[in-house]
Design a protein around this nucleic acid. Sequence first.
RNA 1: GGCGGCAUGGCCAAGUGGUAAGGCAGAGCUCUGCAAAAGCUCGAUCCCCAGUUCGAAUCUGGGUGCCGCCUCCA
Length: 476
Amino acid sequence: MPISVYNTLTRRKEELRSSRESIGIYVCGVTPYSDTHLGHARPSVVWDVIKKYLHYRGYKTYHVQNFTDIDDKIINRALELGVEPLKLAEQYSEEYLESMDALGVARADLYPRVSRHIPDIISMIERLIERGHAYAVNGNVFYSVLSFPEYGKLSNQKIEQLQAGTRFEVDPDKKHPLDFALWKKAKPNEPAWDSPWGKGRPGWHIECSVMSHKYLGEEFDFHGGGADLIFPHHENEIAQSEGATGRPLAKYWLHNGMINLKQEKMSKSLGNIVKVKDLLEKYPKELIRFFILSSHYRSELEYHDQKLEEVSRGWQRLNECVNKLAGLVDGKEFTPEPLDEAGAALVKAAEEAEARFAAAMDDDFNTALALGILFDFMRQVNAYMAGLRSEAGDYALYQAYQLFAKLAGGIFGIVRLEEQRLSGLSEPLLDLLLELRTELRSQKLYQLADYIRSRLAELNVAIEDTPQGPRWKMRS
RNA sequence: GGCGGCAUGGCCAAGUGGUAAGGCAGAGCUCUGCAAAAGCUCGAUCCCCAGUUCGAAUCUGGGUGCCGCCUCCA
């Protein structure tokens, strides 16, 4: 079954077809001038999962994600703080990468910076001028939107309509109000580079055209980013790249929905951001990923302070199940030889779950559906484990464990295997206590048995009496 | 004003023509000395109106409400 994806450009789902050996992915990265927030985490986690799923399906990928390290916001912030703009940007770029590492996001293959591509930018601007798509005025260079008949095709807008909504003052040097800057004339106290048009710096959108072209070539596969980038950023990228090459920029445009706080977009300018750093202090990364993956990537996602607590219960159950499996399987491998009826049924259920999971992901990466399928399978596994007589583990459990490890662990990154090992004497002593308590229970000395349980609970050790005997676990 | 999206049980969330996945919360039950864990059972006709159709949450038209973009933004 082929993978299909919703393409913003055509506004419908299309089958994924790549003529390349490895799928080229360009995701618009961040403008690094303040802390990484949840809104940045969503596309990162989503693309992390998409990539891992593509790998699972046998594709190779090459993923480029830029840092826009030259920008008005960075310059202004640097001026406030009295530091070098590029240094500030570098610092926040590092912070971004650290946050994403901490979220378990695999790194892109390349993180190009605007500041290191000035000559490439200048040459693309020259090319645009040659081809009649751009003009220089007073040290600035503007892109001429009227020179590109398809302008507006991504955001499905006509130039006249866009113009009607314009609510900012138009630079009198522009031929058309929607023309945008490719090169900005230097102002005092700003980083500036020499160019054929004098000292200046690149405009906002040009860097993505230049760097995607340089590292992925013409017409690569995926171009991604937040839905708020559709206009003007991606629209302008298309105008620049396609104006310069005469060829389509990317085949599939994928846009993730915004994360809202109290029904309002989380954004730096609104000052309502939730920092990834802060979240990670309170919650495991796996839970944050679980939350992000619990709805489809294109829909909006509501966040509030209790949100992660609300979803954590279901997440914990999933983890509990996988942990029990891990304990039973205990790193061993099993062969299918002795397999009773229930075991055979579970093995079959695992196969079905995997097929359904893949079908869900094939359909525009429907992680919410896929999660539902994992929960379905979890119920079957739990039922099987409840009927278990020994702690020996078997082939069916082994298959179930492998499946969770592959899908929930490897692709989604939402399970956390708890290390129950305690240091030194603690573990034997704990086992001794459990043994003692079992003896007390068999003598019906329940008060004492319960006393042990409640005192251990105070030490964050939870005891569960299962048909297979008592087990303990650390409460987080 | 233009463009796009969304509206599904108390909450979250799949489902785009054939009679409503899954999660949380709630109720009951099983297991159990109790507890915990787990399992089982119970709950919605899908914002409103009008159409198309044998049949619509799903298509069409018209409303209502919310969000996003049209200014930097993931």
